[in-house]
Amino acid sequence: MADGPLMPRRRDMHPVPFDPDYKTSISRSPRWPLLSMESTPSEETGPRFGASLLGPLDNNLIMNYSADGSPAIGERILMHGRVLDEMGRPVPETLIEIWQANAGGRYRHVKDGYLAPLDPNFGGCGRTITDAEGRYQFLTIRPGAYPWPNRANDWRPMHIHISVFGHAFGQRLITQMYFEGDPLIARCPIAATIKDRGQLERLVAPLDMSHARPLDFLAYKFDIVLRGRRQTMFENKPEGM
């Protein structure tokens, strides 16, 4: 295989596993250090999904759960961006899945009992596959903030959950996109598990008027960077040769 080892994760650029302000992390974070090793074929290979997986409305959350052709209620937005690796190369033909609450902050999940109502025409999940340049797009409604049982009055900022595969199982990533200007971001203990402020800002999508469609939808841009592969120069040269 032409695939070199994955570049090691920079763990200081990710959230800390144990953060008492995000209470559930207290009992769900390992106490022992991770076992670090160079990646193996088990991490350097991964599942691939072709375009045949997709239905025509899979990346349109405004319409993909509609019972009778009515659109979901809320602020219509285009979410778009590119998937790149750490070497700056586009990641084409990779699966992106998103999920989110509706405009009132209610999730369509058997376990969500928040009093804001469900929208009968909004399911809250979507998926797409990046094109040859690593681009993707979703049409959706902007999710509402919602309260959650953490500290006594904690509210999540508006956010969309994102899952990306890349081309290697070791690139697997789940993250959250926040929205420019939301005052709840600075108060959120989940956002604050990321200690590097510059890294947190990378999860905040700017308003992108250049991609808004007049009289139809606003747009937000969200680029995603996955782990890259180490350069393999000299890789096959035995020691001393």
Partner: peptide, 13 residues
Amino acid sequence: TLIETPSQTAGPY
């Protein structure tokens, strides 16, 4: 080089 996008919890849903 770029830096990997930071992870966030997948959450309960």
